[in-house]
Design a binder for these strands. Structure first.
Length: 737
DNA sequence: GTTGCACCTG
DNA sequence: CAGGTGCAAC
């Protein structure tokens, strides 16, 4: 036994070393994943775009996509070509952005659209039924046919349709065609490419024309704004020059910026109104309507703010508008002017919106009643970009929103909830697109009561994932669905026949922004049964939060639901929680004073108010494992310390309630010190300490597995946990004694 | 194949 | 405290 043990443990040690390497491996994989991060970003985009494309193809396009596509394209352009460009840089835009990597396109197609598209250009034979089918086997002819089809299709497209297809923001500026077409084009010989290029140029011209129009309109708007400004400053410049100079400049810059290329702005994270606003205005072409709206909005707000600033100046620092305050005539006047300005700006903005919508909606597609009214995206969505948040993130999500919601009726009423909150930059809405409506059948447990269909979940959405990064502090809640989970769990039904969440998509740009818990959870979920082994990790705890239950309960329940539905049957009572709460943690810690190695059954008995599944069990076990870890670390530490202090025999070692060791332990397991630690624990602690002491003195600690013997001893020292702990209310009962 | 554990890491 | 990993026992 000892031999075997030492062998295996040595072996284990080497493994441990490998674990260390494994850590490095983790780092390495992290590195590779970061290296692949750019790739994955684009993967996600591609996926989304591809989906959009496929939907465009299959579902009959509607104007919304056109606009969105345009927006996205602009956004992509703004982001310095976006991740796509970065990644595919050498694939060359020169070779026409149509040069979508074939394999990639294929894989995408295989995921979300019909496989044929990938296998053969004849995925959509109808238009060419007259061709001899028998010759399809001939590779050459096949390619030829593809070319012809392509040309025919291209010619049959009305120029304005160009706008409709290009949803590929991957810089499909020149050849704005769908990815499928891209695939085709790949196979085109050069001569054919030429005629196609002609087409492309035609379309480009058309686009330019539209841009010109837009530009004109925008210039018009700028004029109006300037007039308003001047009007405004005529009055106020004299009152407080120093104060207003900044804003004045800002406003002027804003005006200037409005005609700028949005890309530049977004590249710098948004708020670059620094003053290089005199950039050449040549390429108005990439003007982003959303951005324009945003700027207009910002302008409006600034002017309103400007007007407001006058008041505190006279009334003190209060931010309240103090309408009834002792207003001077100047004050009232300013206020009135501000109101007027607001109104005018509003109308101006409305006009702009209408214009832009008109221009972008121009493509002669019928307007199906779609759940995605053009530009129903409130301008408030865009300030986030300007505000300096990661533009990639937002734009990516906007894309998600666009494409995802286009297909599925907007699941979260996200739009409905947003108007009326100008400038609030409702952060959680940014991630809403990640949510896909859950089908009732998939979520028939308590969680369904959480409001999958209620539409009220988003205020507390993904508390676990976004609260940390965005300072979003969820109120007490019966948590909503954890978004990443949902995005995983229900991706499959939506992902087309092949379905499934691409396992390789480990580090999507979105997931990178999410908490690691949920991210890795999704990862694990995605990896299917591979998580079987260490599923315990599937429950991100949320100790920092005040509410009980928290998101972890739902996530856990998700975990349980998805992994073993069978485990959760016995509980349907209303008192059964789905997850472990901070109180459960506290209780577990107190239980540790009695038992260091509780069995699963014991845990189930003592946490009877929790709906057990494998995840819960694992989490509880993990808790105790962590407790032990801390416990043994302390023991070793104090044993070594006492050795250093000159202690020579174990009889000198004792653990009393006032010794440092005990205080450390008590602080850990009984922080509030509102529980009286049983004497038995002191005994066990003393024994443990002495075990460590002896082992260290004997030099056993050179053996990498030297602790194992100690563990063996300690695990036998568990004592009965008082019945009180079986009560769900044990904490109250215990702590009030 | 599952489960529980220790270890390491963040 | 949780994630991840390897290992061992069942």
């Amino acid at each position: 036994m000892p031999d075997h043990d030492s062998d295996s443990l040595l072996n284990r040690q080497t493994k441990r070393r490998r674990v260390d390497i494994g850590v490095k491996r983790t780092v390495g994989s992290t590195a590779s994943s970061t290296a692949a991060a750019t790739t994955s970003k684009s993967n996600v985009l591609r996926k989304l775009l591809k989906r959009a494309n496929s939907y465009e193809d299959t579902m009959m396009p509607f104007p919304g996509t056109t606009i969105i596509s345009q927006l996205l394209k602009n956004n992509m352009a703004k982001n310095g070509g976006g991740p796509e460009r970065g990644e595919r840089g050498d694939r060359g835009l020169s070779n026409a952005s149509s040069d979508a990597p074939q394999e990639d396109a294929c894989s995408n197609s295989s995921q979300d659209s019909t496989p044929q598209e990938c296998l053969s250009p004849f995925g959509r034979p109808p238009g060419l039924a007259t061709f001899d089918i028998e010759r399809l086997n001939d590779e050459h002819l096949r390619a030829k046919r593809a070319r012809v089809e392509n040309i025919i299709r291209g010619m049959s497209h009305s120029p304005s349709v160009v706008q409709q297809a290009p949803s590929s923001p991957r810089g499909g500026e020149v050849c704005s065609s769908s990815s499928r077409e891209n695939k085709r084009k790949q196979r085109l010989p050069q001569q054919q490419q030429q005629s196609f290029t002609q087409l492309v140029c035609q379309r480009k011209e058309q686009k330019q024309e539209e841009r010109r129009q837009l530009k004109l309109q925008l210039e018009d708007m700028q004029k109006q704004l300037r007039q308003l400004q001047e009007k405004f400053f005529q009055i106020y410049d004299s009152t407080d020059d120093s104060e207003h100079n900044d804003l004045h400049n800002e406003l002027h810059n804003d005006i200037g910026n409005m005609s700028e290329d949005s890309p530049t702005r977004s590249d710098t994270g948004g708020d670059d109104r620094g003053g290089d606003d005199l950039r050449s205005d040549n390429e108005m072409s990439d003007l982003d309507p959303g951005h324009f709206l945003d700027r207009a909005r910002a302008l409006l707000q600034e002017q309103a703010l400007l007007a407001d600033r006058e008041k505190p100046r006279r009334e003190g620092l209060g931010r309240s508008k103090a309408q009834g305050g002792p207003g001077s005539s100047m004050h009232a006047e300013g206020k009135q002017l501000a109101e007027t300005l607001k109104q005018e700006l509003n109308s101006a903005m409305t006009q702009v919106v209408d214009t832009v919508v008109k221009v972008f909606a121009k493509p002669p597609r019928p307007t199906p009643q779609q759940a995605f009214p053009p530009l129903s995206i409130p301008p408030e969505r865009f300030p986030t970009v300007v505000n300096g948040d990661n533009p990639n993130f937002h734009t990516a999500n906007q894309r998600l929103q666009c494409f995802g919601d286009v297909i599925i009726p907007n699941p979260l009423d996200s739009f409905a909830s947003m108007p009326g909150m100008p400038g609030s930059t409702n952060d959680q809405t940014e991630a809403l697109p990640l949510v896909v409506r859950k089908t009732p059948s998939e979520h028939h447990h308590q969680s369904s009561a959480v409001g999958a269909h209620g539409g009220h979940h988003h205020p507390a959405l993904h508390p676990s994932s976004l609260s940390a990064s965005m300072g979003f502090s969820p109120p007490s809640f019966r948590h909503p669905f954890p978004l990443p989970l949902m995005s995983y769990a229900f991706q499959s039904p939506l992902g087309g026949p092949t379905g499934g969440y691409p396992g390789k998509d480990r580090s999507s740009p979105d997931s990178m922004d999410l908490s690691r818990e949920t991210t890795s959870l999704r990862t694990k979920m995605a990896s299917g049964h591979h998580l079987g082994h260490h599923h315990r990790s599937c429950s991100p705890a949320h100790p920092g939060s005040t509410a009980e239950g928290l998101s972890l309960s739902l996530i856990k329940s998700e975990c349980g639901d998805l992994q073993d539905m069978a485990d959760i049957s016995p509980y349907s009572g209303s008192n059964i929680q789905e997850g472990l709460s901070p109180n459960h943690l506290k209780k577990a810690k107190l239980m540790f004073f009695y038992t260091r190695y509780p069995s699963s059954n014991m845990l189930k008995m003592f946490f009877s108010d929790v709906k057990f599944n494998r995840c819960i069990t694992s989490q509880l076990i993990k808790w105790f494992s962590n407790f032990r870890e801390f416990y043994y670390i302390q023991m070793e530490k104090f044993a070594r310390q006492s050795i250093n202090d000159g202690v020579t025999g174990t009889e000198e070692l004792s653990v009393s309630r006032d010794c440092e060791l005990f205080r450390a332990l008590n602080m850990h397991y009984n922080k509030a010190n509102d529980f009286e630690v049983p004497d038995r624990f002191l005994e066990v602690a003393e024994i443990t300490l002495r075990e460590f002491f002896n082992a260290i003195v004997a030099g056993k600690d050179v053996d990498p597995s030297w602790k194992k013997a100690i563990y063996k001893v300690i695990c036998k020292l568990d004592s009965e946990v008082p019945e009180v702990f079986k009560s769900p209310n044990c904490l109250q009962e215990l702590l009030h004694e």
